[in-house]
Design a binder for these strands. Structure first.
Length: 589
RNA sequence: GCCGAAAUAGCUCAGUGGUAGAGCACUUCCAUGGUAAGGAAGGGGUCCCGGGUUCAAAUCCCGGUUUCGGCUCCA
């Protein structure tokens, strides 16, 4: 057991050191980079040179680590002058350590710290646990091997990073590993395949999902709900094309920054540069600017579900989380400065409502610019200061708690991001509301004020669930595939007992369908038990078994998802129940 | 894009140089079923694609595609 006086982070950091010592024993020519503690464990970056290290070696390293732990070696701290350290690392050809020390020297350091464990001495600020023997038996595990750039810069050499997870006890480690296993069971890619919601095709291309009829139901329900919420606060849906001239993005500023991440489209009849659009905002500026606007028309609000295309790097694609073709419940509001607050508050209101409906918790993050890096953004410091203060005031006035994050702003302005938590406590960024003083000016948008003078409106960019596709992936994992009734692709499964009941099942299914209930019949030549098992695996909310008893009465035998007790209910009442659940988007069954 | 791993039946996977396999699914037959696997038989393969080594390649090598775990990126 790791003693109480040694906190977990220190122990994790020490494990990284122990791993490095183990690696040093196995590969004496290895070069060391850095090895910090992480949220759930630790890692160390190594340069193995020509040696190939694979996942199989993790077991070997782990054994060696356990050996070091059993020996109960002391962590001996010592200090060297910067010059001595530089000489030492030069001699040992530890060029990464050398670079680190040289940087410390530039920062004015005179002395550096070393920790020695057995015969392995590593540059390290510490602190460490007293002895390797303090690590609890079975409290850590090496999990994966991955590439990582030296100092996180893709221009630098790729090192080999070995990850480990570590906790105060074996019990806590096991709990964590169980959580990972649960996350794996809920993986939207796996459930999406099992439930037949979407597919990818080598012929269509990576990151380009195809939704089945069932998947399209879920996607459409998400969009439908988002549209309802948007209409509630005055946003009306518009429709825009998927390609446009480069000029549009040159004016918006996206061309300079994101040109390499956009798909270029060739025309046979013109030399004009066209692109598939990666976002809707510039298009909406054209709608606004299509005629002269009066202050009386403001706020002018539009929303759009057009497909968006981004040429993401191949390694960045992942299931529905990161796609090359997706959409957004993307809305833009053009308004006067004195209308900003009300607009933000109304959007925050519907987002809150949406998250309640989806049964998700969330918190607000205020994403600000990085004042040390003004070149990353459009517009001058004064506008940024002003708009950031405005957003913070809105949160304060409405007593909404928030976290601030510098350097996370959009290029055109600060934003409020909504970080939601799923049932496993994992965080996802979903909604966003962004303030933009830049874009309207760049496009020369104006409105005529009360005095007949032209003024520039402010633009607010916002999304409620962000990308419906990505959100669908998040929901699959959040619900572990058990969608609430209103989102379920199949709401009722009808199981026939015998062959003579099939006609009646079809008649019943017809009645359900007429009442907009999504229904499926399982009339396979199988036992009732087997058909129940399959329906349960599909996470269908309601399963009906139809036999002689049901045919001779108006009562239905309903099996609710997750329950084994059978409920008897009149057919009309059951249909009404589903209608209510769908109408009010009730989460519980 | 970079580092590493993987791709075999519809699905999950076994097979490591010598006749392509299992479970589930599917089809047919028997059973006519009552709330989480009834029985039997059968069909089903571009072993991701292209090249190479070999008497012989699903298996070894090279290139490509796609996927996965990371890194970098994410308007």
């Amino acid at each position: 057991m790791i003693k109480k006086d040694d906190n977990l982070e220190v122990a994790r950091h020490s494990l990284a050191h122990i791993m490095a010592a183990a690696v040093f024993e196995l590969w004496p020519n290895v070069r060391f980079a850095i090895g910090p503690a992480t949220e759930n464990g630790f890692y160390y970056d190594f340069d193995f040179g020509k040696d190939k290290v694979s996942e199989n070696d993790l077991i070997k390293i782990e054994k060696k680590m356990n050996h070091i732990i059993r020996r109960g070696l002391k962590f001996e701290k010592s200090e060297l002058s910067v010059e001595e350290a530089i000489n030492k690392e030069k001699k040992a050809k530890q060029l990464y350590k050398l670079e680190l020390i040289q940087d410390l020297k530039k920062g004015g350091e005179k002395k550096v710290c070393y920790y020695e464990l057995g015969n392995f001495k590593d540059l390290c600020r510490g602190p460490h646990i007293e002895s390797s023997g303090k690590i609890a038996k079975g409290s850590f595990k090496l999990t994966k091997l991955a590439g990582a750039y030296w100092r996180g810069d893709e221009k630098n050499k790729m090192l080999t990073r070995i990850y480990g997870v570590a906790f105060a006890s074996k019990k806590e480690l096991d709990e964590y590993l169980n959580m990972l296993a649960e996350a794996e069971r809920r993986d939207h890619r796996k459930i999406g395949k099992e439930q037949g919601l979407f597919i990818f095709s080598d012929l269509i291309g990576p990151g380009l999902p195809v939704y089945t009829d069932k998947g399209a139901i879920v996607r459409n329900e998400i969009i439908k709900y988002s549209n309802e919420l948007q209409r509630e606060i005055g946003y009306n849906e518009v429709h825009t094309p998927n390609i446009n001239k480069a000029e549009l993005f040159k004016i918006s500023g996206h061309y300079d920054k994101y040109k390499d991440d956009m798909f270029r489209v060739a025309s046979n009849y013109s030399d004009e540069e066209y692109y598939l659009k990666p976002m809707n905002c510039p298009h909406h500026t054209q709608l606004y600017g299509s005629r002269k606007r009066s202050y009386k028309e403001l706020p002018y609000r539009v929303s759009d579900f057009a497909n968006l295309y981004r040429d993401e790097k191949p390694g960045e694609l992942s299931g529905l989380s990161r796609l090359r073709c997706f959409s957004q419940d993307d809305g833009h509001c053009f308004c006067r400065e004195d209308q900003i607050k009300d607009e933000f508050v109304s959007v925050l209101g519907v987002i809150n409502k949406a998250m309640k409906t989806y049964n998700m918790e969330y918190e607000i993050r205020l994403s600000l610019w990085d004042p040390d890096n003004p070149d990353k953004y459009l517009g001058d410091a004064k506008v940024w200061e002003k708009s950031q203060k405005l957003l913070e005031d809105i949160l304060k006035e409405n007593k909404i708690s928030y976290r601030k994050k510098e350097g996370e702003a959009a290029i055109y302005g600060p934003k409020m991001d909504l970080i939601s938590k799923d049932s496993l406590g994992r965080e996802w960024q979903i909604s966003t509301i962004q303030l933009d003083f830049i874009m309207p000016e760049r496009f020369g948008l104006t409105y005529v004020n009360e005095e007949g003078k032209e003024e520039t409106p402010v633009m607010i960019h916002r999304a409620i669930v962000g990308s419906p596709e990505r959100f669908m992936g998040i929901l699959i994992e959040h619900y572990a595939g058990a969608f609430p009734v209103w989102l379920s692709p199949v709401q009722v499964k009808i199981i026939s007992v015998g062959e003579k009941h099939i006609d009646y099942c079809r008649k019943l299914a017809g009645e359900f369908a007429e009442n907009n209930v999504r229904v499926e019949i399982d009339d396979n030549n199988e036992t009732v038990g087997n058909k129940i098992r399959k329906a349960a695996g599909e996470k269908v909310p309601y399963v009906l078994v139809i036999g002689d008893r049901e045919m001779s009465s108006e009562k239905l035998a309903v099996r609710d998802r997750g329950k084994t007790k059978i409920r008897e209910i009149a057919k009309d009442k059951f249909v009404k129940e589903i209608e209510e659940k769908v109408k009010h988007r009730i989460f519980e069954l």
